[in-house]
Write a protein that binds this DNA or RNA. Structure first.
Length: 364
DNA sequence: ACATATGATTGAAA
DNA sequence: TTTCAATCATATGT
């Protein structure tokens, strides 16, 4: 601690203000006048202060008591207070109000959003559930992974909270300790309540910077966890064969305009046991990949066209052709803007040979 | 091991 | 807003 330097500083200040230097004075011996006697008193007091660290605790305690009871103490103390007031006032203003740290706020917000710092099982699990739902699939393994994720998240949360509590406790302990110390010292040392306040805020700042580190590393841990468990790309599963068939069937039977309406998407999603978003993804991918290389998909196209033709034939032979849900207006319909642009794209990609060799033969 | 297929994401464009 | 185009990251086939 730095009381000693401060004390020394204060006393030299006094010396300069009202009295000549101390050591010389003491060597000057006894003057005999009243003023010299007083100086001698002050010299004694200061000497005692100077040597206080050399003494044992009990001795020091006794001397402290003696000092406190000394008749000169209040006057000396007042002088110290005055000087302190001046110096402290000049110090103050340099570091006052700090604005709320934006980064800390960001970390707080994120921790709250992830359900780490918020209520026990509130928004976090909801957000996770939403993410899981978005990543699609009502599979059993999905929920298993999700619970795994939740377990890890709560583990992180627990660590975070115990650490936070530890820091808080340590901070409080230290603060009260320092405050007690300062209050205790304020009896022999000029310490204003404001100074104590300032000290406390310094301590809090230090501890909150430690807290920020904790929050930062917690955030990092959560991010890693998220990317490992919730990034759908990392646990991509192919759709089952049936779903792919259904989607392909729709795609090739609507080849001239493979843009399912919202209702159609919903129906496909239901049939394939996937989400509407996944249907949209699938069609987006399919359109772009088909367009890029029509030749490569020709075989597939022919196969599905043939299948729908067979289905249609079967349906018509059973006399229920009229209300067939999907009208397979296959690619023979040459006016289709999408198909034209797709062919253009395919040609521009340098796939002309494939395109021509494919033959464009679609069953009726 | 490697190449290819495939579902998801992202940012620009319409 | 949806779609396109490029890209990522995994799955699957050889």
């Amino acid at each position: 601690m730095d009381e000693q330097p401060r004390l020394m500083h204060s006393h030299t200040g006094v010396g300069m203000a009202g009295h000549p230097g101390l050591p010389q004075h003491m060597q000057e011996g006894t003057g005999g006048t009243d003023g010299d006697g007083r100086k001698q008193d002050i010299g004694d007091i200061l000497q005692q202060i100077m040597t206080i660290t050399d003494q044992s605790l009990d001795e020091a305690q006794a001397r402290k008591h003696a000092l406190n009871c000394h008749r000169m103490k209040p006057a000396l103390f007042n002088v110290l207070c005055e000087i302190k007031e001046k110096t402290v006032l000049s110090i103050r203003g340099a570091q006052e109000e700090e604005p709320p740290d934006p980064q800390l706020m960001r970390l707080d917000n994120m921790l709250l959003a992830e359900g780490v710092s918020g209520p026990e099982k509130g928004g976090g699990s909801a957000a996770a559930a939403a993410a899981a739902a978005a990543s699609g699939g009502a599979g059993a393994d999905n929920s298993a992974e999700h619970s795994d994720y939740r377990a890890k998240l709560s583990q992180i949360r627990q660590i975070y909270h115990t650490e936070l509590e530890k820091y808080e406790q340590a901070c409080n302990e230290f603060t009260t300790h320092v405050m007690n110390l300062l209050r205790e010292q304020s009896r022999t040392r000029p310490i204003s309540p404001k100074e104590i306040e300032r000290m406390v805020s310094i301590i809090h700042r230090k501890f909150s910077s430690i807290q920020m580190q904790l929050k930062q590393s917690t955030c990092e841990a959560v991010m890693i966890l998220r990317s490992r468990f919730l990034d759908a790309r990392r646990k991509r599963r192919n759709f089952n064969k049936q779903a792919t068939e259904i989607l392909n069937e729709y795609f090739y039977s609507h080849l001239s305009n493979p843009y399912p309406s919202e209702e159609a998407k919903e129906e496909l999603a239901k049939k394939c046991a996937i989400t509407v978003a996944q249907v949209s993804n699938w069609f987006g991918n399919k359109r772009i990949r088909y367009k890029k290389n029509i030749g490569k998909f020709q075989e597939e196209a022919n196969m599905y066209a043939a299948r729908t033709a067979v289905n249609a034939a079967n349906a018509s032979s059973h006399g229920s052709q009229a209300n067939s849900p999907s009208t397979p207006n296959s690619a023979g319909e040459t006016g289709s803007p999408w198909l034209c642009s797709a062919i253009r794209t395919c040609l521009s990609q340098g796939n002309a040979p494939l395109l021509y060799s494919s033959g464009f033969t679609f069953p009726p």
